[in-house]
Simulated scan of single mutants.
Amino acid sequence: MKIFDITLPIHPEMLHWGRKPEVEVVESLANGDASNVTRWRLGAHTGTHVDAPAHFVDGATPVDQLDLHALVGPALVADLTAVTGDIGVADLEAAGVSGQRRVLLKTSNSAGPLKATERAPSWVGLSPEAAQWLITEGVALIGIDYLTIESHTRTETWDAHHVLLGAGLIILENADLDGVPGGTYELVCLPTKLVGADGSFARAILIERDA
């Protein structure tokens, strides 16, 4: 069994949309305390994280009530590293996404923008038309290797988010797929159980089992 950890490390200098994580030392052995204790200030959408439908739809499913069956199970890593701009329907069809329940989009983001510490001026995102196509194909979870699945040209209207979350899909963002070849794996994605939250940071792994 081979395990790919596709989770970004969380630290104060990391790539983040908005305010970066902050760490406070509450107790330390060096200062004579009984143990080392830290307090972290960070947003629900820090690092590798899950967007629940409640992120864009009032009254929709929050992250603590997501179906674990959608977050754990076979997943396709679709190699879209040759795509520039928005991922379209034809790109998804060519990558074999049709009929898949869980899909992770591996793009040029993994080797480029995802490795930076500041947001890039552009990145590969998902077109609204492709988002709608995923719904018709019965996809339950869609992931991508950047801060957002949204195109860099649509961060005012958030069209793909409205389409996907409005239909109840789960979005996984900031998945580090740089060292993961395209193919089928077992996904284990467990967001922290933040009650009533619009999303949550998660530990996500892909498992490749021996034949």
Rank of each mutant, 00 (worst) to 15 (best):
M1N: 13
K2Y: 00
K2V: 10
I3C: 14
T7N: 06
L8Y: 05
I10T: 10
P12Y: 10
P12E: 08
W17K: 05
R19I: 15
E22C: 07
A30Y: 09
G32E: 05
N36W: 10
V37G: 06
T38E: 14
L42P: 03
G43D: 15
G43C: 12
H45V: 10
G47E: 06
D51T: 04
V57A: 01
V63P: 00
V63E: 09
L71P: 04
V72S: 13
G73K: 01
D79Q: 08
L80G: 03
T81V: 07
T81K: 08
T84C: 11
I87S: 09
E93N: 03
R101W: 06
T107M: 03
S110E: 03
G112H: 13
K115H: 10
T117A: 15
E118Y: 09
P121A: 03
P121V: 02
S122R: 12
V124E: 05
G125L: 05
L126P: 01
S127C: 00
P128W: 09
W133L: 02
I135F: 07
E137W: 04
E137L: 06
V139S: 01
I142D: 00
I142W: 09
T148W: 05
I149W: 07
E150L: 10
T153P: 08
R154H: 14
T157G: 11
D159Y: 06
A160E: 01
H162Q: 14
L164G: 00
G168Q: 01
L169M: 04
E173F: 03
N174F: 03
A175H: 04
L177M: 09
L177S: 05
G179P: 01
V180M: 08
G182K: 05
G183M: 07
G183T: 02
T184C: 12
V188P: 06
I205K: 10
R209W: 07
A211N: 15
A211W: 10
